[in-house]
């Protein structure tokens, strides 16, 4: 049984003024335990909408989301969504350490090695040990994003949903963040559903890439990525398989963008 299963998801935003917006038409896919799976789609195609539905923050107009076979009706316990706007999702009144412990406080979790120790180890893993007492607004964008990821990992969720997490950091920082994310994924042995508009990023990170066309979201292509792990920013990206995936996905997206949606 897959860990997460999405069946015939459809969502329409009701908007009296500007007219209703069909964000997701018909979305079905599943995510297996331990998998790193990406969904690529152009901006505005309904990716955030889909994640909100999966995270139980938005009730879809139609369809079901099953997590461990249970229908999602509210924010599930073992799933956490990392938002695109990381700078807005961190609490400016909490220090980095306090931000990271937010989930533990909410879920009232305790770790055998002591919560403090657990958090400090996590800070070390994401390379923020020296910034525990700083406020998020004192950090750079890349660091803020790492705080947001560490906060999500701190409560050891089974599955992490990530919404274009590296969308607004510079290229160098992006590479570093991608590699640390892969490392964390392995270390914590979790499942990640990663959403992005960047085709290369999706291929580089994932075991499997789902491709969506323009709004409304629909899966137009699915590709299994067999590239060897651990991956390497230079070698993996120049591997023939990588190039082939990219060409294919790019073509698919172009085809589905050209025939303008009704």
């Amino acid at each position: 049984m897959p860990l997460l299963e999405v069946r015939n998801l459809r969502h329409t935003y009701r908007d009296a003024k500007r007219g209703d917006v069909l964000a997701i038409r018909d979305l079905s896919f599943s995510v297996n335990q331990g998998e790193f799976i990406s969904l690529v789609g152009p901006s505005g195609c309904g990716k955030t909408t889909m994640l909100m539905c999966l995270a139980g923050l938005l009730r879809p107009s139609q369809g079901v989301v099953l997590l461990d076979g249970q229908a999602v009706a509210g924010p599930p316990d073992n799933l956490i969504l990392v938002f695109q706007e990381y700078n807005k999702s961190l609490m400016p009144w909490r220090t980095v350490l306090q931000n990271i412990s937010f989930g533990l406080e909410i879920k009232k979790l305790t770790f055998p090695e002591g919560n403090r120790h657990h958090l400090e180890r996590l800070l070390k893993v994401v390379g923020l040990s020296d910034f525990a007492g700083r406020y998020p607004w004192e950090l750079s964008g890349g660091m803020q994003q790492r705080v947001a990821i560490a906060r999500a990992l701190a409560c050891k969720p089974e599955i992490l949903l990530m919404d274009e997490p590296f969308g607004s950091v510079d290229a160098q920082m992006r590479f570093e963040l991608e590699d640390s994310l892969l490392m964390l994924w392995q270390e914590f042995a979790i499942t990640i559903l990663f959403v992005t508009h960047d085709i290369d990023e999706a291929i580089y990170l994932s075991d499997r890439v789902l491709v969506s066309g323009r709004r409304p979201s629909e899966i137009v292509e699915e590709r299994a990525v067999g590239l060897r792990r651990p991956r390497d920013q230079v070698r993996t990206r120049s591997h023939p398989e990588f190039v082939e995936h990219r060409t294919r996905i790019y073509e698919m997206m172009r085809t589905f963008s050209e025939q303008s949606p009704a």
């Binding site: 139980g56 923050l57 924010p75 316990d77 799933l79 938002f83 999702s89 609490m91 937010f102 406080e105």
Partner: peptide, 24 residues
Amino acid sequence: PVLIHTAHTFGASERQLLLKVILR
């Protein structure tokens, strides 16, 4: 709103949301 959604995705109750996020 992103902050409120964040609290929700971490499973905050209405009371926790109020005390830990909205009031602050």
